[in-house]
Amino acid sequence: MNRKLVLWLPFALMAALFISFLASLSNSPEKVIASQMVGQPLPEFAAGAAIPEQPGAATADFRDGKPRLLNVFASWCVPCIAEIPVLMELKASGVEVVGVAVHDTSVDLTRFLATNGNPYSRIGLDQGGRAQIALGSAGVPETFVVDGQGKILYQHIGVVTEADKTKLLAMLGVVK
């Protein structure tokens, strides 16, 4: 009896494995891919001015002792519109928001900012996704908290909402 059980064991194991593989194959929700750059210095990037009225964005801009937000966005990104009012409020609280626009054009950005508002102090036009990949960003919108020494403290994936404001302000060291 015992021996028979032992002989069935491999079959039972295989069956269990098969079922678990099948389950994870048929049930794979979109995963949020977090950047591995959190806790590390901001990678080297330099994105030229996205619109003529404002300077571009580069790593060097983040090392002057002032914590900032780095917002990865795009004019074609619908959820990005939703977070502009919250970014505007953060700006009003004294937060500097640096924008990195991905897969975008100057003309589209000008129209986007005119329609939705412009919370950015600088906007870099990311050519060929170089800044985005350097940051480990997988989509838009994403917002990174960068400290005054240029270290990435936190990555917020998705729309920044009212509920996220307090946390972001605390991380940026802005007392309300």
């Binding site: 794979s28 995963k31 891919i33 897969h103 060929g128 996704g129 170089r130 990949i133 997988a138 989509g139």
Partner: peptide, 23 residues
């Protein structure tokens, strides 16, 4: 591909996948 997950970047039309192929 980090956009159309489950696909390799060689077979993805996502712009970010194109950026990765270029790099």
């Amino acid at each position: 591909c980090v956009v159309c997950q489950g696909q390799p970047i060689s077979g993805s039309n996502a712009e970010l996948a194109g950026d990765m192929r270029r790099i």
